[in-house]
């Protein structure tokens, strides 16, 4: 990725934005047709044992306020349009985490007629968290990877 020479002001603004985003990214979750295994593990990250909210990650409802889209499932035909719409409604800069093997390649359902498989074919994905389903620790690690990427966009490109 090419380095752009920003003015001092835009560089500072960027730093502030990144700091704000890293310190409390707002996430939205979308289920594009998964078996709910991954969704349960995502919900489990909110419960007292893993308690992801203490890291400042807030799971909330509207795409218009979200920085991060956490997507599970192999994108069924019906879900595809909705997924695109949610992605478009999110303001820039936005990031996508694909949780679960279904979002990578269709997982166990590879080849079935009603699914797309790879979420990346519908919207660009930044972080993949493989597993069927991935443990809550793995999901938190995936989010932490994303935050790293946010902190060092050039290095991570």
């Amino acid at each position: 990725m090419e380095q752009q020479l920003d003015s001092v002001w835009t560089q500072t603004l960027d730093k502030i934005k990144t700091w704000a985003r890293i310190n409390s990214p707002w996430a939205i979750h979308f289920n594009s047709g998964s078996c709910n295994g991954c969704d349960i593990e995502i919900l489990a990250t909110l419960t007292p044992r893993y308690d992801v909210e203490r890291f400042g990650i807030k799971l909330q409802g509207s795409p218009r306020h979200a920085d991060v889209l956490i997507c599970t499932g192999p994108v069924t035909r019906q879900a595809r349009d909705r997924l695109l719409r949610i992605y478009e409604q999110m303001p820039d800069p936005k990031f996508v985490i694909a949780v679960g093997s279904c979002g990578l390649s269709g997982g166990a359902f590879h080849g079935c007629y009603n699914i797309t498989g790879n979420i990346n074919e519908v919207i660009p994905v930044d972080v993949y968290v493989p597993g069927c389903p991935p443990r809550p620790e793995a999901i938190i690690f995936g989010v932490a990877q994303l935050l790293e990427k946010l902190k060092n966009p050039a290095a991570a490109a």
């Binding site: 939205i28 289920n31 909705r82």
Partner: peptide
């Protein structure tokens, strides 16, 4: 409906 946080979108 279903296991969800108010934040989870439903299908």
């Amino acid at each position: 409906i279903g296991p969800q946080h108010p934040a989870l979108k439903e299908p």
